[in-house]
Design a protein around this nucleic acid. Structure first.
Lengths: 226, 226, 226, 226
DNA sequence: CATGAATGAGGGTTCATTCAT
DNA sequence: TATGAATGAACCCTCATTCAT
């Protein structure tokens, strides 16, 4: 029996699909279950998606898109950096990472599915595409930092970016598996601190350390009161 | 066509099944692939297992059995505890946990599959059974400790056991996802230390702390030389 | 969304349906394609036709109707035949057949679909119905011819009609598959000549032969100048 | 319920598939029907064919293979032609074409399906491949005939082959639609005669004409006695 | 009348399971 | 015991048809 055209149909299907994919994985997720979870029929699913895989790709694209936009914003903001102090840049970087990791945390169930290949190896290339994008962004930063004298001049930006991006990836993979919300600020502070200590010139490291010390002591404060 | 009866057939099938389950998950694992990986035919698989699920259950039962045996040994050894000192008991406990977690680490690929439901929710109850068993064992210990005066007398052994067993479970889940072998002794020391500090009487904690201090400083030593 | 009521809607749909049926066959023709080819929506299609099959039946009915009308006209004209000469009758018969075969040629793409069952055996009975109708008409003629002494008296009109109708059918089937327009007059002359030679009395055959000779020599003339 | 392994299963499936394809076309043919017509289940069909299309391709490949072999034999026999007279060559050519057209006639139901695209346009390219092959063979002949002086020297072999191959194709297409076995010898004689008259030098045509006259008069003899 | 989102039966394909050899 | 052809349930996807707007 037909229903009135419902403009929310697709978003309801996406939501339902996400839930079912998260619960059962790409393979065990039945299109029928997704459709019914959205209050629709199997046929309707195919009005909005070419295939089950397509729906998964769209969900995947959604999160990768948000993450990509964040990377884009960071890159776009580079022009404004010229007038800032070390401390301001470190803080800006910190806030950006925080935003990204908060998003990952919020959508951790899906992100976990995504990071683990969606129950299928067929989508690894999308992840790889995004990983490359992230690595390129990191490489751009490292080059910028080297030009400004923040980072040591003997660094190979590409190799360093590979390493740093790999580190972030690992942190994200751990984050999505945390049973309870960890202190994300602390995680980031640790990761960034590591990067800075690894890459930075003496002056920059000293400068940045103050910022991270504060974050860490705040974190300890939170921990001890928690 | 027929091959000579091979007594190793079943164990080869189990090994092959484990490998294929780990690689592809329960669903994507084809019986044909398992049989061929064991150098046998699909038909032979069914001579040894009632179904694919049965084979999975048997593998699952294997690891849970080993873990269960460990729990059994601990429980069985309780009679011998009477004549031991605090320190000896703590050390004994530590060694038992170490043995269990080493086993989990060795079979981490399979354990991961197991802990994550084998790619299917159908086996969660087996996991739950084992979890209950572990929780009961823990509760038994807590009661024993309370009787002996090691643990505070205001503890609810069941609630406490739930919490402690949950903690261990989480540690195991993290362990099976570690990309490189972590310092398992350190992990256990931290977990046990937490339990003891949470549960123990003052005297017992002080006593045990020496042991854990040693483990921790050994761990730091390992880390700094690594 | 809604368009103004358009009285041409149904005829546009019929035209579009015919085109799509011819191009893709009954099965592969999608209602959506038909509707869009008519500049309408799927829903509109169902305002005018109960089903896709119904639309096909209507198209089929259209051509069979035209052909049937021709048969009807021939039968209805029988009263006027009394006053005519052999030659006039032969010529009249020739012109009627010509009209029918010209129509078949004009609509050969559709007729081919029709004659081949519309890509589906479900409509064979409609064809059979028409075939029966044609055969009955032929039988009526044969009886008329026998009464008048044109045809031999030892003919079984039903059997003969079956044969003759089958012959015509075959000619039609061949016609619709001709890549270029053949000399339809010639085809008819040959078919009719065959019928007459098979059925007619000596006097009638002689009489009619003159007519066919003329057609044939005209045909040769056309061929030689073409 | 399992049956004993039957080595004839695939050939029975092919036979059944051919029958069902011929009866219903590629689209309306259900795999289930094919399997059951072969006394097997749907699943068994997929033991022998990757897909329904694959089965069709295999059948198609079978007939095109036989036809291709015939072309191959003709080409391979060219070395032996040197010592022969015109008449012998013409007769040889005639017999080869006869063999091919007899085969087409024997398998006309399938050939018709093939020539009409199998109810689907997806296999046209296989037909086109074969058509090209045939055209190339014809072109080879024309070149040979020109070298030997049988054919006029002002011919473009490629263009001529295109025309001749197209003619043969049309003859085949008509043949497969004949309701009763036509006089294939006559058809070939007419086609070849046309080719020879179109292509041959005066001497060759005269020479060949005798042969064809004989075939034609035999055909008339057959017709008049039939 | 027109629309197009919604429906669900139908059929292709996969693969766990059976069983005659 | 070992084999692998045969089976058929299950699930994805298509598209004719319905109906609220």
């Amino acid at each position: 029996m037909a229903r009135p055209g419902d403009p929310s149909a697709k978003s309801r299907l996406l939501k339902a699909a996400e839930a079912v994919f998260i619960e059962r994985g790409l393979d065990r997720a039945k299109v029928d279950d997704i459709a019914q979870a959205a209050g629709l029929s199997k046929g309707s699913f195919y009005l909005h998606f070419k295939s089950k895989d397509e729906a998964f790709k769209e969900i995947l694209g959604g999160v990768l898109g948000v993450l990509g936009e964040n990377l884009g914003q960071i890159e776009a903001s580079r022009e404004e950096w010229a007038g800032r102090t070390f401390e301001q840049l470190v803080e800006y970087w910190f806030e950006q990472d925080l935003k990204i990791f908060e998003y990952i945390w919020e959508r951790r169930a899906l992100m976990r599915l995504v990071l683990e290949g969606g129950g299928s190896p067929d989508y690894q290339h999308l992840m790889n595409l995004f990983a490359q994008r992230a690595e390129d962004t990191v490489a751009g930063f490292i080059r910028y930092g080297m030009e400004r004298g923040y980072y040591r001049s003997d660094i190979d930006p590409v190799h360093a970016a590979t390493f740093v991006a790999g580190g972030y990836d690992r942190v994200a993979r751990r984050l999505v598996r945390e049973p309870v919300r960890p202190d994300i600020r602390l995680w980031i502070a640790e990761a960034q601190s590591l990067c800075l200590r690894g890459l930075g010139t003496q002056a920059f490291v000293t400068s940045a350390t103050n910022f991270y010390m504060k974050v860490l002591s705040d974190a300890l404060g939170r921990k001890s009161t928690a």
